[in-house]
C-alpha cells in the first residue's frame, strides 16, 4: 500500500501551509519558472522541467545583511538580523535537494555558518520526482537519481490522479499531519533516468592539470558569473559594508563567482589566478576534485542548469568526458 494525495487535497494542504510557513514553490515570474514565495497554491507551476535558478537563494540569499551595525555618540551596537518564518520548499527536484546535502558539507563543518545553519534548521522540503530527464541533466553521474528521496523530507511522485506521497523524515511526517491522504495499490510510474557518465579518476584529473586544454576551453568562456549563479551548489560570497547613512550600516554578504576577474586579486595587486584559464580550471577542479577530496562528495549534482544556460556552451559533461577520455 502506498499513500497518495489528490490534486485537490494537495491544493488545500498547500494553502493551509501558507498560514504557518513561508511556502516557496515553482511559480511563474515573467517567462521564467523560479522558486519564489507563494501566497496561494494556485500560483504553483507543476509542469516545469527545471527552474531557471535553483532554490539555493533560500539558504544562501543573493544578498543578506549578516550584521546590522548601529552607530551613535554612545558607541556601536552590533546586531544579527533575525530570520523570518520557517519555510517549506515545495516542488524541489531531488538534484536540488541533494545540493543541500552538498552545501551542508562546507557550510555546517566547524566552524559552522550560523546563517545557513539557521535556514536549514527551519526548512522542510517537499520534493517532486522528475518523470524524465531534461536536456543537460546528468544527476545519476553525480550520485543522484530523478526519484531520490534521501535528501528530502517528503517525496511526491506524480500518478494518474495526484501524487504518491512518502514522508522521508519525522519533519516530513509532521508537516503531512494536516493533509488528507488516501491509499493506492499500484506504485507510481518509474522515473526515466539520464545515462551516467564515466567520471575520471583523481589521478587522471591531477595528470591533466597543466594541459593546454584549459587555456583552449577558456578561449570561449565569457568570464561571466552565470554558471555560478544558476548553480545549486556554488556558494562563494563577497562581504562588504553598506552604509545607509552615518549611523546605520549593514554588513552585506552577496553571491560571488570564481569567474569574476577580481575574485582572487589581493589589495596589493597580486592575483594567483590572473586569467580566465586559471579561473575556469579552478571552477571545475573545485567542483569535481578538491571538494570531494575534502568532503567526500562532489560540488555538483548534475542539475544541468549551467549546461543549458552557458552562453558559450561550456558543458561540464563534455569536460568530464574529455578529461576521462584521451
Amino acid at each position: 500500500m502506498i499513500q497518495t494525495i489528490s490534486r485537490a487535497s494537495l491544493t488545500l494542504w498547500l494553502d493551509a501551509l501558507t498560514r504557518d510557513y513561508t511556502v516557496i514553490a515553482p511559480r511563474r515570474v515573467e517567462n521564467l519558472v523560479l522558486y519564489k514565495p507563494i501566497s496561494s497554491a494556485e500560483e504553483v507551476v507543476y509542469d516545469f522541467g527545471r527552474t531557471g535558478l535553483s532554490a539555493k537563494e533560500h539558504f544562501l540569499p543573493m544578498m543578506q545583511s549578516i550584521v546590522n551595525i548601529h552607530k551613535d555618540q554612545n558607541g556601536l551596537i552590533l546586531e544579527v538580523p533575525r530570520l523570518g518564518r520557517s519555510q517549506v520548499i515545495f516542488g524541489l527536484r531531488p538534484c536540488d535537494a541533494r545540493a543541500l546535502r552538498v552545501l551542508d558539507a562546507v557550510m555546517l563543518s566547524e566552524p559552522a555558518d550560523a546563517y545557513y545553519g539557521e535556514r536549514r534548521k527551519n526548512t522542510v522540503t517537499v520534493g517532486i520526482a522528475c518523470k524524465e530527464p531534461q536536456e543537460g541533466c546528468f544527476c545519476t553521474s553525480m550520485g543522484g537519481a530523478p526519484d531520490d528521496e534521501k535528501d528530502l523530507d517528503i517525496l511526491l511522485v506524480e500518478m494518474n490522479d495526484g501524487y504518491a506521497v512518502k514522508a522521508v523524515t519525522d519533519g516530513g511526517r509532521a508537516l503531512l499531519a494536516g493533509a488528507s491522504l488516501s491509499e493506492a495499490d499500484a506504485p507510481p510510474p518509474v522515473s526515466k533516468a539520464p545515462e551516467a557518465l564515466q567520471l575520471p579518476t583523481l589521478e587522471t584529473w591531477q595528470g591533466r592539470f597543466n594541459e593546454a586544454y584549459w587555456a583552449r576551453l577558456s578561449d570561449r568562456c565569457l568570464g561571466c558569473r552565470l554558471c555560478a549563479y544558476v548553480c545549486p551548489t556554488c556558494y562563494c560570497f563577497d562581504v562588504r559594508d553598506y552604509a545607509e547613512n552615518s549611523s546605520e550600516i549593514k554588513r552585506l554578504r552577496c553571491w560571488d563567482s570564481c569567474q569574476a576577474s577580481g575574485c582572487y586579486r589581493l589589495a596589493g595587486g597580486h592575483n594567483p589566478r590572473p586569467t580566465k584559464r586559471e579561473r575556469l580550471r579552478q571552477r571545475f577542479y573545485h567542483k569535481l576534485v578538491y571538494y570531494g577530496q575534502r568532503f567526500q562528495v562532489d560540488l555538483c549534482v548534475g542539475c544541468g542548469r549551467c549546461v543549458v544556460q552557458c552562453p558559450a556552451n561550456i558543458d561540464i559533461r563534455e569536460i568530464i568526458a574529455d578529461v576521462a577520455g584521451q
Partner: peptide, 19 residues
C-alpha cells in the same frame, strides 16, 4: 601563503588551493 579572504572560516571560497 597569502590569499584573498572574506570569512576566515572556510566558507567564502576564495582561499582554496587544491583541497
Amino acid at each position: 601563503l597569502e590569499s584573498k579572504m572574506k570569512c576566515g572560516i572556510g566558507k567564502c571560497g576564495r582561499c582554496n588551493v587544491g583541497e
